[in-house]
Design a protein around this nucleic acid. Structure first.
Lengths: 234, 234
DNA sequence: AATCTCAGATTCATCAGATGATTGCTACGG
DNA sequence: CCGTAGCAATCATCTGATGAATCTGAGATT
């Protein structure tokens, strides 16, 4: 077991044991290194590893703190790993994304009247309106369209009310992977159809129609997957 | 932007650009540090961060290598983060788990006849048989029962044929979280019922009955969730 | 009394050099 | 042909020092 592992283990144990809680400050490097019986260099490597996982946050001059440990923090690391392997595994990643977003659409429809869901759905509507504006203009700004697409899907995931679900969706809908995908879709002239599908999904969600919301979201994402399959073949 | 961020960014960029591919060996610390214009200490912190994310793997005496970047590698980091936050978010985590495992059961049923799925299903059957043996004996070994439960759910996820799905299920079904959960369930005398539910799920999957497989898996995991809710109330 | 300013202390960030431990390779001997 | 011992390469770790960002509190100002 390496020194760094000892550091990671020691700190996670402190958190699991309740010795350290969300937002707490860690001892200074010198003291913590001494407590774990490692050099400051090794301690820093371990802390850096936990920082990469979103568990710790070090601020120069201020100290090192345990993060809020919210589910949204598992987005960064996971999203990055997804990006790196997305090249070869675009299809399986997207299948899981479809499963999760279909569920999210259903959940969002069920609680469409809740206050929290309503504001998220308003954000989704705003994203669609924005996209509609872009499409109506003569010169289509694909970058902005992509932003609106991302905002729409994120808002819908938020409306589902499960932060873990929202975080996973965010991570799987990788930024750069979708960038490549969108490039292809807009080239294929699918902009308008995508917009119509989004509208249909949101209408069903707002109406509280769980089944329609699920089916329409699934259909929308299956369209994307079909495009993905055709791209792979080519 | 910190030196470490520069390291992480530089290495991920090399991978995304195809300069480094899965299995490739990185330059030695001294050279890479010089190339990125950082000290060896900072380089090591960055490498350690990517190691924590499962992207790199350093072997003393041998060198540092890019991992296979397989989806299964996103398990370690994610699983750890899930464990850390599981305390406060057990229910939302389990809801997502239920969604994914329900989908997995359906996919497994659809391809029950495939060679790869068959061997995974055989493993699931073996796990159930093992659990049956434990239950039949007078003195029930709960630890072994938990192992069989984990093996069953893992085998079923594998049978679905989507490595990303399997990896996420593995990560969400946190080891220690489930340990606590199981303790409670066995205390409540739910061992036998769990076994029956597992049998029912597997029968449907092997029979290729997608709908039954999905419903039974969902029902099984809902039972667990109900227990989770009751625990939270108490 | 409340607020602003700034110097000092605290803490993380980074570097440099040296030593130990592990692995892989190579030449030698059987 | 095979096994083994030595050697080189490489990561692992430690130590000590310096820089940069942040926080704290005393004093000045309004």
């Amino acid at each position: 077991m390496s020194r760094t592992d000892r550091v990671v283990d020691g700190i996670t144990r402190m958190i699991l044991d309740g010795e350290l809680r969300a937002g707490d400050r860690l001892p200074v490097e010198k003291d913590l290194a001494a407590a774990l019986d490692v050099s400051r260099g090794s301690l820093r490597e371990g802390v850096r590893a936990l920082e990469a996982l979103g568990v710790l946050e070090a601020r120069q001059g201020a100290g090192t703190y345990v993060t809020s440990l919210d589910p949204s923090l598992l987005v960064g690391p996971l999203g990055m790993v997804v990006e790196l392997q997305a090249a070869g595994h675009a299809l399986p990643v997207h299948e899981v994304r479809r499963t999760l977003e279909t569920e999210a659409a259903g959940l969002a429809a069920r609680r469409a009247d809740d206050a929290a869901a309503s504001s998220a759905l308003a954000a989704a509507r705003a994203a669609l309106d924005d996209a509609a504006g872009v499409l109506a203009s003569g010169d289509v700004d694909h970058e902005r369209l992509l932003e609106a697409d991302i905002a729409f899907h994120r808002a819908l995931a938020d409306a589902a009310g499960n932060p873990v679900l929202a975080a996973l969706v965010e991570a799987l809908a990788g930024r750069t992977a979708r960038h490549r995908l969108w490039r292809g879709l807009t080239d294929a002239g699918a902009d308008a159809r995508t917009q119509r599908e989004h509208e249909a999904v949101l209408d069903a969600v707002v109406a509280g129609d769980v089944e329609r919301a699920r089916v329409r979201m699934a259909a929308h994402l299956l369209e994307v997957e079909d495009f993905l399959r055709r791209s792979d073949d080519a």
